[in-house]
Structures are given as C-alpha cells and as structure tokens.
Design a protein around this nucleic acid. Structure first.
Length: 315
DNA sequence: AACTCCCGCAACCGCCAGTCC
DNA sequence: CGGACTGGCGGTTGCGGGAGT
C-alpha cells in the first residue's frame, strides 16, 4: 500500500500535453452518458488516447459543468488566505469551501499571486512570516468563525453559479436543454469549459455500463446541437441568439462559438455576423467545423452521429 | 520589429490512502 | 492479512503569451 506502483497506464502511444477540442468533446460526451465510475477504463471506452489520470484531471479541473471561471473575487481571495492559514497546502480542502473552484486553480493562484500579496501585506504590518504551513494557533478560533458558515457559503454559491439548466424530456434522440446564463460571461479559456450538461449521477445507467457508447447526448447549447443535426448553417447563429438569449448569454455564446472555432470573430467595425454564404464559402457547405484546428469536421460529425469507438480508435 | 524575460496556468508526475479480493 | 488496484492529492514542470527592453 502506497509503496509506489507501476504507471497507471501504458504511456506509449498516448497523447500528452494540451487537450484538443475533440478530446474534450469525447470526454464530455462519454462522462455525460456513462459517468466516470472507472477512470482507468474510461479512455479506452471513450476512444481517447489518454491515460485515466489525465482524463480525470481534465474533467475535474476544466470540463466539469460547475466550474467557475474568471478572476477570483476579493472575497474568494480572502477566503483562500484564511483557509490557507488554517490548513496549509490542503488545496482540496480549501477548494471544497469555494464552490466552483478547483484545487489546482487555487494552488496556482496561491503560488502565483496570493502568496506574494499576503507577504507584502504582512511586511507592511511587520507581522509573522508567511509560510506554507498552517497556523495551528488559529485553527480553533477560526472554527467558530462564520466564514464558512451557511450564510457565506450560500452567498458564495450564488456568486458562483454561472449556469443553471433544466433538462426536459428528451425529444427523439435529441436533448432539449434550457440554459440560463447568470452572472458575468466569464472569460473562456480553451474550448469546453462552458459546455453544459446534467450531473453525472443522473446519467449513469447500469444497462449502459461497460458498453461502448453509441450516440453521445451532449447537452451542448441548443444552437450547437441544431447545427450538428442540420449539418448546415441554417441561419446565422447570432440571429438565433437574438431571438432566444439575453445579451449576457449572447456574449457568452459568442465567446464559446469563437473558442470552438464555430465562427470567426465578429468584425467589430461592420458589426455584422457570419452569414450562410460566408459559412458555405468555407468549403463543403458545412459551417460547423468545431475542430478547425484539427481534425476536420467530418470526423466529428461521424463521431457524433455514429460513434464506433472500436473501429475508429485504439485497438 | 526583434528579442528576452517573466508570469500564469494547464497538465504531468509520484506518492498516499482507501477499497477490494 | 497482504497485495493489487484505483482515486485523490500536492508538488512541479513547461508552454504560451504578455511585458519590458
């Protein structure tokens, strides 16, 4: 127990480094449908050339639907500082008190920013030295503080919530989702953080277990789904958005579209949106090319419609 | 404009702890 | 009871982009 062990997986032939949008989609689709009961087996079943650990990390730190993005608020920073004083480098425990924030994110913020901020603050006060060790003398007194009390936690949760969603009864093979984007349209980093889907617990069904998944019911924005299903531009996304979304969610969706490579950034001078024509000029008539970077859209479409992991991937 | 330096952050690595057989 | 296996955690690395020269 705990004496080291063989690598979690055969690292040969596995992808490393940054995740591609396609990998993100595969992971999301799989977890969305089958959950993540077994991280080790997940990559193979999902057709990912990644080790289970890598998938887990990507999910936990980036793809989970409840991840809060954007800068830390003053309140969050203070919470981290206080908790770090109490707990030391127990990032996961600190993260558990900050809904939507991951231990990795908090760790990064601490190491790159908060530690310095606190150090300079303490220098001004001429107070005790800043270390990574918990200040045990404070633990007891702090345990009675209301910092982690229900009020604060509720407050924090309210701040955190960026999206809420209601899953309706599936129509045919599609899933209808209402996504209400609250709060700010936080900065999207990479592509997939804002793809939204229902909680995994509701998605895991025994009958699906150990079965190669077939059609991922990805709860992407309805607009994206319609694009996927229609296989064409239909109408400009922005026009649709005007009909259905608030200004905030428009911004958010636009960011998402751009990040996913679904459309070019809007020409700010002309304030026009991509038209069907401009989309179709791109090539094969398919506007939707989520993987402009790599690989090309036909692969994705084939994947989305008729996933056959066994034939298209590892062994 | 070109180059270097610095910083932020995503991802990796190795170890630990819990669980199962 | 002990080994095997898996998930989780914390430390570290390295890439990419922005700032500075």
């Amino acid at each position: 127990m705990g004496k080291g062990r063989a690598p979690c997986c055969d690292k040969v032939r596995l992808n490393k480094g940054s995740w591609t949008p396609e990998e993100d989609l595969r992971l999301i689709a799989y977890i969305k449908k089958y959950g993540h009961a077994n991280w080790r087996a997940l990559p193979k079943k999902a057709g990912l050339l990644r080790c289970g650990k890598s998938c887990r990390l990507r999910w936990i730190n980036y793809l989970r639907p409840d991840i809060k993005r954007g800068n830390f608020s003053e309140e969050e920073e203070e919470t981290i500082i206080k908790l770090h004083t109490l707990l030391g480098n127990k990032w996961s425990r600190i993260a558990s008190q900050l809904p939507g924030r991951t231990d990795n994110e908090i760790k990064n913020v601490w190491n790159t920013y908060l530690k310095k901020k606190l150090a300079s603050r303490e220098r001004k006060k001429g107070d005790h030295k800043i270390t990574d060790e918990p200040n045990s003398s404070l633990i007891e007194s702090h345990s009675n503080s209301e910092h982690l009390g229900p009020q604060n936690r509720e407050k924090n949760r309210n701040q955190t919530t960026e999206t809420t969603e209601v899953q309706k009864e599936p129509k045919d093979d599609t899933i209808e989702v209402e996504v209400q984007h609250k709060s700010n349209s936080s900065v999207l980093s990479r592509c997939s953080s804002s793809l939204s889907f229902a909680t995994v617990e509701n998605l895991h069904s025994e009958e699906n277990e150990d079965k190669i998944f077939e059609i991922p019911e990805m709860m992407i924005e309805p607009e994206l789904w319609s694009m996927i299903e229609e296989g064409d531009c239909g109408e400009s996304l922005a026009v649709k958005k005007n009909e259905t979304a608030s200004d905030e969610s428009k911004d958010w969706l636009e960011s998402l579209e751009i990040e996913l490579g679904l459309c070019e950034p809007r020409d700010e001078k002309q304030e026009t949106v991509l038209s069907v024509d401009s989309c179709q000029e791109e090539g094969n008539g398919l506007c939707f090319d989520p993987f402009q970077i790599e690989p090309a859209s036909p692969l994705l479409l084939e994947y989305l419609y008729d996933v056959n992991v066994e034939s298209s991937n590892i062994d």
